[in-house]
Design a protein around this nucleic acid. Structure first.
Lengths: 249, 249
DNA sequence: CTTTATTGCGTCAAAGTGACACATTAAGTT
DNA sequence: AACTTAATGTGTCACTTTGACGCAATAAAG
């Protein structure tokens, strides 16, 4: 167990990352399985004393999973007392997962900042767990394992935030391969929303946003009629992110 | 100067409240004028070690302004290093505003959680400044005084968040008197958006949401035709808050 | 060559939106 | 008391967006 010098960190402040990917028509989150425990956890960690919180989130994600330079979006601060579970830290000590110094540090009251990111599933190959974890895996949101502390609630809140953003912001640029078909994009939306959409109206609405480019090519190999391949117009995609899709007023 | 026992607080964590009101067709924020300084500040303070952050915000607002039981909405954590200004704390000490103990506490690195609330201007009568401040006043957003630290940025972010929410959530229940006219509601929207709206289309759209009740009465006394008085249907208002106005999908 | 399931494109009615005309009314003016 | 003024209430009309669905084109399998 490497020594973790604890006094370089900002006291009582942590970050937790909800990393969402999309694969086989399922929304998945990247989770760490804690050593010697049956519970799973979001990749999270501490903020250094002279480090921006946003940057800490990026660093922590890298340290704990190997994912590099992910664009993380802050979505909520979880600041209720009682986030901690009675006996949680003692359990870790007794199982030899953490040492006494770290345990003392962990026993203080913590608030945590939630961040989320949407990443392309296939670009994350064999994420590397750190020394606290025995594995790092994609787990389907529809069949989540038991999560430690309030990580279940954090994940839920990230999902809800995402669903709301779908109404006024484009989504998919970091979640899909560079080129994708309309049915694939639709499947992403349907999964995020938990709701079926009409194929034809979806295409019309999506094209109306003007953020998609139809490449001349089709995806072949599957059965039946081969669909067109699309890319995002990154310039216009970013404009839509900033300005919103349905300005409303 | 009352002694402020500093070790009951969570280290390096503060809350700041953006309180917005609407008066004479202007959006105003409640600000504190710091003693012996030309700068103004948002009402803010520290979180106790065994206190929910949300509850701390409510308490702090009460302690610093006298406003009671305001519903505060968390909107962002400001966590960059360099939020602090060089020499800011020393200045306070030299002017005798704070003592050495508080100064030492303040010199650590802080992150702050931003909260906002919309309140009815007229219900806030003579807000009371605390011992750190020499006054507590409504200041128009269009002519803000100089704010200390990054409070200007915090206020700006609250305003932007509000503007975005206007697209999918009803607004006005806590910002207007219980009964109000359609032109008054429209003026609120126009001020928040910084944009003129068509009178007739505004009314149609607003009524379409089904959250307004037209009382049988009119507002008399003004010149010209007297407008109807409306109330919010609080039941439906809350439903719209939860479900969103323009579901989108 | 036929079958089958999927994709692309189009239609149509209903609802929503933006721009505007016109009638109504309360207070001030003459 | 009649007139003027400016704000409010209601309605219209064309255009766009949305929801629901029909039909033809196509890639692979039998």
């Amino acid at each position: 167990m490497p020594a973790l010098s604890v006094d370089k960190f900002h006291p009582g402040l942590s970050v937790d990352c909800v990393i969402l990917g999309f694969h086989q028509n399922e929304l998945k989150a990247l989770l760490l399985k804690m050593k010697k425990m049956d519970k799973w956890a979001l990749p999270g960690g501490f903020v250094e004393k002279e480090e921006d919180v946003d940057k800490a989130a990026v660093r922590v994600l890298w340290e704990r999973t190997g994912l590099k330079d992910i664009f993380l979006q802050q979505f909520y601060l979880f600041g209720d007392v009682g986030r901690e579970e009675e006996g949680h830290v003692e359990g870790l000590v007794q199982k030899g997962v953490i040492d006494r110094e770290l345990a003392g540090w962990l026993k203080q009251r913590f608030v945590t900042v939630g961040y989320y990111a949407l990443v392309e599933y296939s670009q994350v190959e064999a994420p590397q767990p750190d020394y606290l974890s025995e594995s790092c895996e994609w787990r389907s949101l529809s069949a989540l394992p038991e999560l430690m502390l309030d990580h279940g609630r954090i994940l839920e809140k990230a999902h809800a935030t995402l669903k709301r953003q779908l109404n006024y912001q484009p989504i998919g640029l970091n979640l899909l391969p560079r080129r994708f078909t309309m049915p694939e994009l639709q499947a992403l939306y349907e999964t995020l929303l938990g709701q079926k959409l009409d194929r034809r109206n979806f295409q019309r609405k999506m094209m109306g946003y003007g953020i998609l480019i139809r490449t001349g090519e089709r995806r072949t190999g599957g059965a039946h009629k081969s669909p067109w391949l699309y890319e995002f117009d990154e310039e216009k995609y970013r404009q839509s992110l900033a300005g919103g899709l349905n300005a409303g007023w």
